[in-house]
Write a protein that binds this DNA or RNA. Structure first.
Lengths: 140, 140
DNA sequence: CGGGATCCGGACGGATACTG
DNA sequence: CAGTATCCGTCCGGATCCCG
């Protein structure tokens, strides 16, 4: 799972420094977003906060995800050390996915973002509606 | 700027409830991520934290963005009420982009995410390197 | 059950040319 | 300077088939 954001130019980083603030808070975050910003990752991470889950269990819980994307999502999380994959050589096979400490720690900032989202969702939707209605930006 | 994530199925929301935690912290956050998770939005928001900027000023600061994507990004932010667009009818024309209170407030959770990213970037990179090196997941 | 392999449409995003 | 319009490649992500 290659990051969707191929690379954020280093000039942006330098510019951020010149602008007078820590580049860590704008460039590195882009990298994280490239990781968790895809369609399903956050959903999976949040669902796993409650404990290990099996593949099809996750698939059912999410409901609209294809097995392909769930596989890719879990592989990516495993690759980054956020999730562990445990295979039980039984018949039929059983595979458990669980968060690592690192993966669990991601829940915290994500919840912060969730709080912001909840607090401002209505406002954003309203702003969006207004913007789409009176299109004064077509020149007023 | 239509959201990249068309829709996260409602079943996921219900599943999240069944799993025993507030769906707000997993589904709504997906919506926010669909908004700020694109390639440039966070970068722009963080750069604007220092005050208003002009179009080409932002373009130069970011460095690798096309005028097309900067326009789309700023339109999206304006639409959601995170950024204001001020046109000065001078010659040559001048347009200032500035964060709204809402846009400024987004900086906080983003910084949280940035902090997490900074704290764990090295760990993630290392995990990634190991995962890519010994490919024990091809059966070991 | 838990995937891998493949096909494919559509969205994302860059490059370029043109405008007021 | 600050865009708009257009073309076009890439890659995301769904559907389907197959395998151990």
């Amino acid at each position: 799972m290659k990051p969707r954001h191929k690379n954020v130019p280093e000039q942006a980083l330098l510019a951020a420094v010149a602008a007078g603030h820590d580049p860590n808070n704008c460039t590195v975050v882009s990298d994280v977003l490239a990781r968790i910003g895809d369609k399903w990752t956050v959903l999976v991470v949040m669902l796993l906060q409650n404990g290990p889950r099996r593949f099809n269990e996750l698939k059912r819980m999410i409901g609209g995800i294809s097995q392909r994307m769930l596989t890719l999502t879990l592989r990516g999380l495993e690759r980054d050390g956020l999730v562990t994959r445990t295979v039980y050589p039984t018949v039929p096979p059983r595979v458990d996915y669980a968060l690592t400490d690192l993966g669990r720690s991601l829940g915290e900032p994500v919840r912060h973002l969730g709080a912001w989202a909840n607090a401002n969702a209505a406002t954003i939707m309203e702003a969006r509606r207004i913007f789409d209605t009176d299109i004064q930006h077509l020149d007023g």
